[in-house]
Each structure stands twice: as C-alpha cells, then as structure tokens.
Write a protein that binds this DNA or RNA. Structure first.
Lengths: 344, 344
DNA sequence: TTGTAAGCGTTATCAA
DNA sequence: TTGATAACGCTTACAA
C-alpha cells in the first residue's frame, strides 16, 4: 500500500527545490537548468511519478478523455465500431469512457450527464433519437459530439452514418428479385431512428415494385435474439396479427434479429431458406459462418468508427473545424439464406 | 456554446448566498434551512448544475470511476463480460473506462498507468501475464484490482476465473471419447496464462488416456479468425511441422479460433466434422448457429463479470473486505462439430 | 443557520 | 534559473 501520493510537491521535497521548479522541469521548460532538470526527472522516475489527470483537467480543461455512448455494448455491431475508436484514441493518448444506453432515452440522458461531469472532451453517441432534449443538452453545454448510426435533426452536429433506407432497399430489392412478394419486416424499436429509416426504405421499395404495403407485416421489437425468436413463435402459433403463411421472406434491421430467426428455426423446425428466406443487416463477423450463411447488407463498421473519432479529435484539437456529415453506403452480401421463389 | 461554467460559485451568486451554503444545500445538509435549500436546488436545476467530478475527486478521493482492461475489446467473449460489468457499475453510479491491451504487456502497462492517472477507484484486468511487473505496479500503487480470466501468482489479489485445465480436459476428453487420438491444439499466444493452462490440460488428458504427446500438434497464434485460417492453410499446404493427415480433430482455446477453422474449411473446401472434428471454448453467442453448430466448452461469462465487479465494489466500499479467489467451472456443450471416428 | 478558509495536485503568471 | 502565488471546483472543518 502506498503511504503518500507521489506528487509534484513530494518530488520537490526529495529534490530540495520548489514544486514549481519540478513542474517546469517535468515539462521540459527551457528555463530550467538542464542538470537540475535531469536530476528531478530521475527522482520522478525513481518514485514512479504519475501526473494526476484530475488536477490537470481541473486546471487546464484538458482531460484527454472521451466518452462513447452506445445502445448495446454487447452487440458485435457496436463492438467493431468502438474497437476502432479505442485504437485511435489510444494512439493519440486519450482514454475512453464507455456507456450503454440500452435504447432508452432516460438512460442516455443520464449517461451524457455523467460523462459531462467526468469532464470528457468529446462524445460519440449512437443516439436513441434524432430529436430529443438530450441533443439540446449536448448543444447547450457545448460538448463536442459526433453522432453515429443516425443523423440528428439539427444540422449543426457532426455525424457519420449509413444510409439505412438504401440498405433496406437493397435487402428488400434482393428478395423481390428472387421472386418474393410477401415480406415480413422484423424491425427494431419503433422510436429508433434507424428503425424508422429502414422501414421507410422497405415501404418505398415495395411501392417501387408495385407491391402493396401491409402494416401487419412490420414488427417492432428490441434487437435481441430471444425476443425475436419469441416474436416468430407468436406468429407461428397464430397469436399475432399476421399468420405464418402470409409471408415467404423476412428482412431484418439487424443480423442479431436474423440470428433470432435462426434460433426460431432451430426450435420450431422450419427451414432457412426453405420455409423462409432471411436477409440481415450489419454483416457482423459470424454471419458468414451461420447455417446457412446469412445474406446480409454490410455496414462499414470500422470505417464508421474511424471517421467518427477522427472528426471528433479534429474538432477538439483544431479551433474551428467544419461541421461534417458523412453518409456511408451499405453493400449487399449475397450468401445462402434467400431462395429463389418459383413464380406461381 | 456555454459562456460560463455552472459551478457552485455561480449558483451561490444567483442565489445570493455563499458558495459553501450551496454546497451544503446540494448535499442535503440538515444544517441548511429547508427553504433556502429548496430555493438553491431550484436554481441549480434551472441552470442545469452538474458537479465537476474532477474537482470532487481531487478533493475527496472518490471518482466513482473504475477501469476495465482487457485483451481484445472486440471479442464477443469479453463483450459479454464487460456488458455485465457495465450494467452493475451503472446501477451503482460508477462510470467505466475501457481499454484494450491486445495481449501486449507494454500496452497493458500503459493502460494501467493511464487509468491510475485518471484516478480510477479500482481495476478489472484480464492480464497478459500472471507474474509481471505490471502486477507489482498494481500492488505497489495500492490499486484495488480484480483479475479475471487468470490467477496472478501472488495470492494477495482477488480474481475470478474459469479452470482452463478442466476445460481442456473436457474438450480433449470429448474428442477422445469419439475415437480421436490425433488431436491438434490451436492455442493462443504462448506467453498467455490461459494458453499455458489449457495446454497443460490438453497434455494431461492425453496422458491419462495413454496417448503420447506430440509437440508439433500444438500451435500458438493470436486469437484471430484470419490468423487461424492462415495457420490451417500452412498446415494443408505442407508448410508446417505437422501435415494435414496427422490429425483428425482440432481443439481450440477459443471459439474465435474455431471460427477461423470454419473459415479455412470454407476456402479450402474441407468438411467439419467430416475431415476434421472441431471443439471450441467460451461458448460465444454465435456458436450455436454455425454450420455445423459448434461443440464447445462454456465459460460462464456473465457470472465472471458479475463476480468480478461485485468483489471490486465490495473491496472499494468496505474497508477491510477479504481476499477472494473464485474458480468457475466450464461445461461442455455438445453440438455437431465432432464426429465419432470408426475404430480402425 | 450561514459564511470563511484551507486544501486536493496541477498549470501559469509574475517576481526574485 | 528558480520560487511564490493564484486559480481550477469541490469538500469540510471551524467560525460567526
């Protein structure tokens, strides 16, 4: 156990100089005699001196800390993103706070509040909403923020996101091209911006092929394997507004949801793509090795993370960097979970 | 943009009282008249007052921040663990720093240093080593630490980990029971404690069945899909110390490695379990849905996280809590990636 | 019931 | 070339 904190003051005592001399020496201030400087540095190293970032931050407003607030820490989709973020931060000497908002606006607010309290220099947020008091909060407090995964309604905020409508169009277009016309959409929570955009893409694509939109073919649920499996179960057991024979293909907002369909296939003994064709979204790592390999729409996750963190650090380190909004394009990955339907 | 920080002083000015009165009111100090207290609180709320945790921490030594240092942020194995950790922390009002050591001792050291500088109250570390100067550092600095995934050589440190030798025994035992005798071990980096334990379990289990141990059947690589696929490739192309026909089963330190084998199977057109039987370790989410579903040994990940964080918070919040070392037991999940071998 | 003052470990300005 | 001092925002005696 440590008796006394090794502070600048402590080093000063050991070196027999004033503490401000130590501070300067440690900062390679040219005003300090190089001999004393080296002596002080040696003592600092000996006692394993480590600057107190709290004190530093209090005084200089630089904490070298940034916060990342996401909706599901466990999701492989997000983990690829913050992996990339973490790597850049580490290289640039920053530390990362990570928090989970679980798709909940209140939780998100609390997370933002805590991070501000902690003195973060910037925030990367995959927000629950595109227009909420949380966003106002961020703007009012003057916290540098980059949104990912969606685009805030205000256009004075940086963001980088994938065009979810285009993604839905690719997914839906693909199953329609395979001959499907009755397409179930397993969407995320209704209030989620990405759900809304994805649904819009779904509806528009149906329209463009002259397929009428049937609202009971759209299901909103949390993005979760078990919950998705239960949703399918409800349908198969006739406890839903749609019956199991009213659709032949399933398009999902997320690969995690798609895996939920796989889970249901396992327990309810239906076949993919025999009974239902399935298309995912995100292209998380495992999808390629699923049984059958999942046809999905790729989101450039690493790129998202890199753009976001670089934009954020830019805006922190450069006084007046511009507002940038980056839109990334999704890309269909055809594998084996969609089967061509015989024309009837 | 904010003009002035909303501090206790600022509130005091607005309320026309001294700043220490504000501090007390905000802390529900009974010494303060309830009327003024409410008035002050109202003003604080109005201006969206948010305490500066840096200043707080500097003064009170409580930052309500803990650090989590892991070896691979992206791995679903770890993400299930820190998901659990994050949830508990959030409930108890703590914030989480997260850092990636990438199985590198130097990086680990830097991460520990930074976290200490940041004033974390405790650390959860999946260390690169069980006996390193990093651990000494932790002990010398008096940082409350819980190790996960391995057991430090010193027994004055809390830890919670799964018995990797037992896990290896289950995996190897299972393929031996299926008639395999030539078993390739795809292990993690050689210096990694879990690699060492797993290998020990592998060797001992072979011995207990009277199967001679052949060192060229053990491969050490980073835990990574691509790198694993390349390892397999090297073997299949005759560029390794072992040939492709010298083994019939593959046991791996991690499901991620097992997925690497699946990747190789895809590109090199061999069959699992036809050509090689495969057993994973960890039981990450996706394994159940792979093609074929992966037989693997489960690690209780959520439990690991929960135990670890609860132990840590205990030792932070209670003056003299005991040193605890928790060993969790692995459990074989039989699925379809191992095939019974005809006795010859 | 409220106010004053010192101190946490830095940085930064000014004086010696 | 070095030292004294104030300030960052907060907590906490202690004084009024």
């Amino acid at each position: 156990m440590k008796q006394q904190n090794v502070t600048i003051k402590f080093i000063a005592q050991k070196a027999g100089v004033s503490f401000s001399t130590v501070a300067k020496a440690l900062h390679d201030d040219p005003a300090i005699n190089s001999a004393t400087r080296e002596r002080i540095k040696a003592i600092a190293a000996l006692y394993n001196y480590r600057p107190n970032i709290l004190a530093k931050g209090l005084r200089s407003r630089r904490t070298h800390t940034i916060g990342v607030i996401l909706n599901d820490l466990q999701s492989p989709f997000y983990s690829e993103i913050y992996k990339a973020i973490g790597d850049v931060l580490h290289k640039k000497g920053y530390t990362m706070f990570l928090a989970d908002s679980k798709y909940d606006e209140q939780l998100e607010k609390k997370n933002i509040s805590t991070m501000i309290s902690q003195g973060v220099e910037g925030l990367i947020v995959s927000s629950v909403s595109e227009e909420s008091e949380n966003i106002e909060l961020l703007v009012n407090e003057g916290v540098k923020t980059v949104f990912i995964d969606n685009r805030p309604a205000r256009n004075d905020i940086c963001c980088v996101y994938v065009d979810h409508e285009a993604a839905a169009a690719q997914a839906v277009g693909h199953v329609i091209a395979a001959g499907h016309r009755d397409i179930l959409l397993l969407n995320g929570p209704e209030h989620l911006p990405s759900s809304q955009r994805f649904k819009r893409g779904y509806i528009e694509t149906l329209a463009s092929f002259g397929i009428p939109y049937r609202p009971n073919l759209v299901k909103h649920n949390l993005i979760d394997i078990k919950i998705t499996a239960q949703q399918i179960e409800r349908i198969l057991e006739g406890k839903d507004t749609v019956r199991g024979d009213e659709f032949t293909a399933i398009v999902t907002l997320s690969d995690v949801i798609a895996i939920g369909v796989y889970e249901a296939a396992l327990t309810h003994h239906f076949s993919i793509p025999g009974t239902y064709s399935v298309v995912g979204y995100d292209n998380i790592l495992a999808t390629k090795y699923l049984s059958p390999p999942l046809t999905t729409v790729n989101q450039p996750k690493e790129q998202t993370g890199l753009y976001a963190i670089n934009m954020l650090l830019d805006s922190i380190e450069k006084p007046e960097s511009e507002m940038v909004q980056i839109i990334l394009t999704p890309e269909l990955k055809v594998r084996s979970s969609v089967r061509p339907l015989e024309k009837t």
